[in-house]
Amino acid sequence: MIAILNINWQTLADAVGLGSIYALMAVGIGLVFGVLRLVNFAYGQLIMAGAFALALASQWGWPLWAGVLLCFAVVVVLSALMEVIVFRPLRGHSPAVMLVATFAVAFLLESIALIWFGSLGKIAASLAYLQRPVTISGVDVRKIAIVATVVAVLCLVALVALLSRTSVGLQMRAAAIDFRTARLLGVRANRVIGAAVLISGVLAAAVSVLLTVQSPLVTPDFALRDTILVLAGVVLGGMYRLGSATLGGFVIGFASGLLGGALPTAQSQYLPSFLFAAVILVLLIRPQGLFTRSQQQAVERV
């Protein structure tokens, strides 16, 4: 196995970059899961919408800052709409019903994009210069790998500060542990959920900027594959804690980047099989997640 891998520093840097982007997506999915117990399959379509906003802005010849601003506006508005129109009426239903509902929203948004922009997609090229490599002590590293890692670290630090230093952050953490008790103690449900959806929208927008640099061609199924992988990673790491979910997202991104870059083509076409076989294996051994402490829970009868 090791013999067919050829790992160099460049592949490693790219893998860390991809892992960072996936970690951001994992946080976005994990935050909403924390307060709503809802797995948002449509998260990738938020990113797709942001990417189309960037592509349109670069097509219209807007300056870079305006394009990024448009991207953030579109994604945040869309995720707020999703919360109000779909998630709120479904609040309290079984996780399966909510998962299938977000499945529907995902395909709805994807087909709207298909009608609107066609299946060939558009190019978001305004940040293309980040694809070029810089040389650090003899090793060529693409700038985007560095930028992605730095952005991810900054976002995570900001998020940790928000969760631990502000009252809304404290309420969010409380709601994630036990929503009912938190509400009894005066946490306002709509405020906490709104905040979580908002933050997860902002993260999705950041991810769409980073992902359009990775792959500038934006099609209606943009970020779909990434979302599936991140969801697997989040469950793999452990859904019920934000830290373990993030770590799971990073690990699956890192593994997919590393194997994708290092395996020869004959093997790398089977990459999804390897990854998902690994995911299934881990789930069988540790259904509660890789990075959580195992605890046997009694059946709760209320």
């Binding site: 797995v39 469950v235 998902f276 076989a277 299934i280 789930l283």
Partner: peptide, 14 residues
């Protein structure tokens, strides 16, 4: 639950 959902999804992918 969710682990079953993701695992069956994995079967589809594979």
């Amino acid at each position: 639950g969710l682990a079953a959902g993701i695992a069956t999804f994995g079967v589809l992918e594979i």
